[in-house]
């Protein structure tokens, strides 16, 4: 019996050593996580977008421009940005009628007479480039990430195509590109903004309903926009740190 106890202690000791080794290994495996807040402070830019609902005319120019600029599949229903049309019955805020035929790519057919009583407006949607992205959080391998300047991007050479991020995005902004079998999403035209251009959607927006903004630039008009408007983000209860700011957004918008 005493031998057994000694045996046990030995086994325990060995286990202890093994655990230490394992802990080291885990540390090694988990290396490379940078503090998000630190990153924001050090960043040169901190990109965001301002959307003014009262300016959107639902022409769909942004949808077309985005598909062209970023080579987004035309078929079937994949969009990096799209426009929704809301018609909210005055007495029933909770049940708005929403449509987005082909994402607004071809514009919107004129609404039927029956709906003309309702309050109606357009809502352009795109990736919110959240500061605490649920999609980035769930990616098992680090194939999607927040860039140092606050843009949520995808590493197409590394993505598994597991679709967990698609499930995790509360805004429906992600899809699997049928050609590459990897996830695809708005890059905030990373190739344009890093060349000093604005995004394709903002470039063609005729009324300035959407405008790219750099929160790090004190002269950027986005500060004026945020100061002078009643601003809202989509699904604030998700606490995603969304950086697409809407002015005059109706409470019925999901």
């Amino acid at each position: 019996m005493s031998v057994d106890r000694r045996e046990l202690i030995r086994t325990g000791g060995k286990l202890l050593v093994l655990t230490t080794v394992a802990a080291r290994a885990v540390e090694h495996v988990m290396a490379g996580t940078v503090d998000a807040i630190q990153r924001e402070l050090e960043a040169e830019h901190w990109w965001a977008m301002a959307i003014d609902i009262d300016k959107c005319i639902g022409c769909g120019g942004c949808v077309r421009a985005c598909k062209t600029e970023n080579d987004v599949p035309l078929e079937p229903f994949y969009f990096r940005t799209w426009v929704e049309r809301y018609r909210v019955p005055a007495v029933d805020e909770e049940h708005p009628h929403v449509d987005s035929p082909n994402g607004g790519y071809d514009g919107f057919p004129a609404a039927s007479q029956a709906d003309s009583e309702a309050k109606s407006f357009f809502v352009p949607k795109l990736c919110n480039h959240c500061a605490h992205s649920p999609c980035v959080q769930v990616c098992p391998v680090g194939a999607t990430f927040e860039s140092p300047d606050g843009v949520v991007l995808v590493d197409k050479t590394y993505c598994l195509g597991c679709r967990y991020c698609v499930q995790a995005c509360p805004y429906g902004c992600r899809f699997i590109d049928p050609r590459t079998h990897t996830v695809d999403k708005c890059t905030l035209c990373y190739h344009r903004i890093s060349r000093g251009l604005t995004t394709a959607c903002c470039e063609v927006c005729p009324t300035g309903a959407r405008a790219l903004g750099d929160l790090k630039d004190p002269d950027d008009p986005i500060h004026e926009f945020l100061r002078t408007n009643m601003v809202h983000v989509l699904k604030p209860q998700m606490a995603t740190g969304a950086k697409v700011y809407y002015a005059d957004l109706d409470g019925s918008v999901r």
Binding site: V34, F145, D155, Y190
Partner: peptide
């Protein structure tokens, strides 16, 4: 730069 391949930028 973070938990991703920096070349992806």
């Amino acid at each position: 730069l973070g938990h991703y391949r920096s070349g992806a930028l």
